[in-house]
Design a protein around this nucleic acid. Sequence first.
DNA 1: TTATAATCAGTAAATTAATATCGATATTTA
DNA 2: TAAATATCGATATTAATTTACTGATTATAA
Lengths: 219, 219
Amino acid sequence: MAVRLEKNPAVSKQALRRMPAYLLYLEALNPTTVVSISATTIANELGLNEVQVRKDLAAASLSGGRPRTGFKVKELIRDIKSYLGYDDVYNAVIIGTGKLGQALLSYQGFAEYGLDIVAAFDTNPELIGQQFNRKPVYPPEKMPEICRSLKIQIGIITVPAEYAQDACDHLTESGIQAIWNFAPVLLTAPPEIIVQNENMAISLAILSQHLSVKLKKQH
Amino acid sequence: MAVRLEKNPAVSKQALRRMPAYLLYLEALNPTTVVSISATTIANELGLNEVQVRKDLAAASLSGGRPRTGFKVKELIRDIKSYLGYDDVYNAVIIGTGKLGQALLSYQGFAEYGLDIVAAFDTNPELIGQQFNRKPVYPPEKMPEICRSLKIQIGIITVPAEYAQDACDHLTESGIQAIWNFAPVLLTAPPEIIVQNENMAISLAILSQHLSVKLKKQH
DNA sequence: TTATAATCAGTAAATTAATATCGATATTTA
DNA sequence: TAAATATCGATATTAATTTACTGATTATAA
């Protein structure tokens, strides 16, 4: 029998970044025709090294794969989701209901990731009282009260850059645990607060630098 | 004299990811009071290792820093921008004018990064002919013609997941060079096309996993 | 039933990235 | 003007990550 000695080996930050790609790939498979899949196949499809994929999967998978057939697709999806914490449901609020805030409020896909956006905050009187995707917009003063009563863990910042630190401070005072920051600002927060920056500039920097190198080559 | 032997040493992908943070930090400084800054200071402020910062800056900076004072802030900003290709202006189009597409069309900050979004495409007849932030929305059929005549290099995909591959194919046929993909899908594109995924799921995965670990500790 | 081949898990080696150290140099201070 | 010190660039070391290798295991086919 294939015994897995290390149950859930330490996983690198890089591996954590690859997990969502595995999920996307696995979920795109037809579950009726593809029951099992090997690390080799996934690696080839995603352009990764097969040992790397096998190690990543070993970290997330509870039951492991079996020689010759690979991993059960359904189990693997479930295990990766559980590994990433998508099973636990977190309540979130959005600060700033501009276009981006509205886009996030309207996006149906977050349920997949265990993220439940339950309310939004905005200073604009015209937006306060409105709903987006059946989620109400409140004035910022209500933040502490609402966050505590609704047991909000995550605050999503989608305000313009100049108001982002304010939003961060408000959220911190309202007792949230983590911040997902879409504003192009470096936030200052207490160390116990998890801050994850969704920095489109990073993505754009990588794209731009590649493109710059590519276009220079063409001359 | 402090001679820099290696002019622009090879930089890692990780370093490239840190560059936008340096820019954010440097641009937040008051240019009248802070003329020069040391790698040490930046490292402390951003919570990074000082040698790492010095190496990163050495890769981007043309003139280098000088002992005791550090780097000239204005020069450094200029050099990093140039290094990231923000000097070159790239023309882009947006495919999909839902909330996210509209948010990107309306965002004024892309000019900073040398990104000029000049038009959008959507299948929705109600949106075709409209403008967002003075940028017109065209039907997809016009993509090849418009992309070629306006010399579009970058296509930004903001359609729902199920249409993303179609959008990608259209863009490829329209002669663009790079794709910035916001849809949660793994795109298949010719190898010469640069594909950069803006995968919010990665960010969310990291946040979620941290939070999961954090909340478990509290018990 | 036995041989073959694909795949896994685990360990070792190689590569890449991060951090520590060192001599040189420019500014500040005595 | 000389000594002290902060900072740089470069090299050396350590740590993390990726890739290669090996033996075990299971399905398939002879």
